[in-house]
Simulated assay, not measured.
Amino acid sequence: HGLIQAFSRTNRVLNAAKPYGHILDFRGQQGKVDEAITMFSGVRAEQAKEIWLVDKAPVVIEQLKAAKKELDDFLQSQGLDPRPEAVPNLKGDDARAAFVKQFKEVQRLATQLDQYTDLTDEQKQEIEQTLPRDDARAFRGVYLETAKRLKAKQDKTGGDTPGFDGQVCEPPGEYGSDAIDQLDFEFVLFASADIDYDYIMNLIARFSGQTPSQQEMSREQLIRLIRSDAKFMDELDEITEYVRTLETGQPLTEDEVRGGYQRFKDQRHAAELAAVADKHGLTNEALQTFVDAILDRMIFDGEQLTDLMEPLGLSWRERREKELELMDKLVPLLKKRAAGRTISGLNAYEQ
């Protein structure tokens, strides 16, 4: 019992920074491990191993090859080259959901192989040939972008679902609306324990100091790395655009990068809010005050929304319609700025 508890607690998932654990060595006590697994499962020893122990690396490598071939075959069946840059050209939610399901399996197997500490050089080369590192990062990036959009649709209920560019999507098929509702995106598979916010800020600072003759990482490689990690999914556009504004050969310290990125985000947020205010006939100051009050308390107050709309002089029916139109634009902005925290009362406008 104690041995199984030790394994379970070591391997317990905590968050995006700990999607798995490492059990460094149990071969020296193989007999006790077999006995504990058999006792815990209540079945024969060999059957218990099949239930509790993962496949050996060569088996998983073959599974990875098969999963990658299925992904390639699927993209080719859609008239596309089996390359990451082709994925945005998929037509319809059927195809996008199919890509999500198929690449998630590829990533699951790749993540599993990352945990093997005794891979031979030949096995590592075999994995690299099957899924080159640059391709893997690029595929993860387009996966996260596609999954993020599908999840936004998944979070909405009822009515026709608009497509990525505003069109009404096709009727549900094998991977249509019903399948989207059932998708589990498993974003934890796409969050590296080695890459965090501090690491990215340091990497951007190093990039800014590069000259063409000493370039370690191109701008596109840096962007691809950032976009391949689920931890940055909620600010992919901001951090990508910020990196595109930087000039190489003009070194920045890590603190300067942090400050510059924060100013860039503040300016972008202010511009987004000003556009919403202008569209709905509100002043920038009034809308900014309304949003700041929500984020300060993390509570949505319906009475404050009524006060915000009062200067427009609308009837109650008109005001209600305008409130719904306004909140349809504000909810995504509020959720992004809340950075994963829950805003109490906002769910009334998320349907």
Rank of each mutant, 00 (worst) to 15 (best):
Q112C: 10
L119D: 00
K322I: 03
T157Y: 14
D301P: 04
S218Y: 03
Q167N: 11
D307Q: 15
G42W: 00
T253L: 03
S192H: 03
Q115W: 06
T38D: 04
D307R: 15
A274K: 08
L64P: 03
Q262F: 10
Q112E: 12
R108V: 04
E321C: 08
L225C: 04
L80I: 01
Q250E: 12
M201Q: 10
G281N: 03
E235N: 09
M298V: 06
F26A: 12
I294H: 03
F190H: 10
K18R: 15
L189M: 10
F187G: 06
N284K: 12
L324I: 14
E105W: 10
A205F: 04
Q112K: 13
T211F: 14
A152C: 12
P88Q: 12
L282G: 11
R133N: 09
Q351M: 15
S208W: 11
Y175G: 05
V257S: 07
I61S: 00
D301S: 08
D165C: 09
L305D: 02
Q107E: 13
L305C: 09
P311A: 04
D307W: 12
Q154G: 01
T130D: 00
A67M: 00
E325V: 08
G2V: 13
D73C: 06
G176V: 06
R137A: 07
G166P: 01
D266W: 07
K69M: 13
A293E: 07
I239F: 06
L273A: 07
L131R: 12
I23G: 02
I299S: 08
A193C: 03
L282H: 08
D114H: 02
T253I: 04
L295H: 11
P172L: 10
T111G: 09
E105S: 01
P332V: 04
V243Y: 06
